[in-house]
Write a protein that binds this DNA or RNA. Structure first.
Lengths: 236, 236
DNA sequence: ATAATTAGTAGCTAACTGCAACTAATGTCA
DNA sequence: TGACATTAGTTGCAGTTAGCTACTAATTAT
């Protein structure tokens, strides 16, 4: 916290933890912090953005660095979630915060990194701006699930269809119908079966699949946006 | 342009102009500008964000002010489209730009305001960052059409269903099927008929409707997000 | 063996989309 | 005046898709 206010990049990194959607928070190290947690963040100096004219996108790279440092591993998906500059003070005093939302595969955090996974529905007290960022980031995560393969990035190279459905349900926050889910998935040519099967202890073993999107058959899909208009979401 | 780099708010304001989607640009007043156009923008001083703790969202208000000044009227819809800070220089030297996308009803621009509507498909040379902002803003505009009543904001208080469909086709950049469009609209309880009719010269007069969303009947819609998962958009 | 549990599939119905064809109301023009 | 063009608005049909219910399949627990 120098004299000149800086911009910051703040990350809402999500994972599946203990059958719940969890967000990564780190301990707030500033003096007046009393048992507080913050999102992982880093300042973005104005200098940086002017010096490296070659950089494809300064903000994206800064976000990737912050996520890597906080979680100990690369985020497997990361996208910008917006800029926040309302009055509520930022833990680091940043004038403006660029928020990112991402996912990373569940793994153990290194000890004493000061980071911890919190269930998204049970977060500790935080700075108002960080609370707002989390709300917006989780909302955008859900909206983007049908445009980016977020769910697949939360899984390993191979997975069962039940695992995939569980991730969708976790991220969307609602139950899905098994038969419909599989029919839609099959029709989208997104996964292909492997020769391996996975037995989880109880019940029938499940076949393992891998994410292997093939170019769409002329059907509905396609980037151009076919199909009718969806008026259903325009409540008020 | 003082010594300290500032942040900026840059607006991609759209309207229907001459049967085409048009973007509002203003003349670049800076010295080394040779016949160049830029998006309407304004600096956001770091001070502002710290002083007015009461302001709901500093950035949204700044964006609304910029749009009002450039177009001479309030934007009827406005949403944040992301933060941009790649190497490409900003016309005003801003280190970081927060982009907004909005729409405003077609109207005559005041004379000699330095602003002009350009067809979205035929834009003049601009700073690379502004070009990137426009691309991202128009993409987001299309994605948000089914979550926010953007099309209705481009129309007056009453409108014919053909006018509504034309706006949808303009913003989406593709043709829609008349019967399906109307059936979906009727099923969503979004508009209600008025007693007035509008005759456009040729052809049968059209009934005027007004935007009056009623709370959804138990059907598909609802904010909670019903319906199956849309895998079709996950190409690669 | 039998029950419990999980995986995976099939049939039915309801809803929705696109298509084609139709009726309705107005202006244009011979 | 009457045929024609133009735009509005509706209807019936076929194909597709989603959700529901119910079923079979394969494994572990008792």
């Amino acid at each position: 916290m120098r004299g000149v206010p800086t911009n910051s990049v703040d990350i809402v990194l999500c994972t599946a933890h203990d059958r719940q959607l969890a967000v990564l928070l780190v301990r707030d190290e500033s003096k007046r912090a009393r048992e507080r947690w913050t999102l992982p963040w880093a300042p973005v100096a104005a200098r940086d953005t002017l010096d490296h004219a070659a950089a494809r996108d300064t903000l994206d790279h800064a976000a990737a660095r912050v996520a890597l440092r906080a979680a100990g591993a690369r985020a497997s998906w990361l996208a910008q979630a917006g800029a926040f500059a309302d009055g509520s003070r930022h833990p680091g005093g940043a004038a403006l915060s660029v928020a990112y939302v991402g996912v990373t595969r569940p793994r153990a955090l290194g000890p004493s990194t000061g980071a911890h996974w919190f269930p998204a529905g049970d977060l500790p007290p935080m700075a108002p701006r960080h609370r707002a960022i989390i709300d917006a980031a989780l909302a955008q995560l859900r909206e983007r699930m049908d445009r980016a393969p977020v769910a697949f990035r939360l899984l390993g190279a191979t997975f069962t269809l039940s695992e995939l459905q569980a991730v969708y349900e976790l991220l969307l926050g609602r139950r899905l119908h098994k038969a419909s889910f599989r029919r839609a998935l099959q029709g989208a040519f997104l996964v292909e079966p492997t020769d391996e099967w996975k037995s989880e202890g109880r019940g029938r073993p499940a076949q393992l699949f891998r994410y292997a999107p093939r170019r769409q058959r002329g059907g509905r899909g396609g980037r151009g946006g076919r199909g009718g208009v969806r008026f259903e979401l325009l409540g008020g």
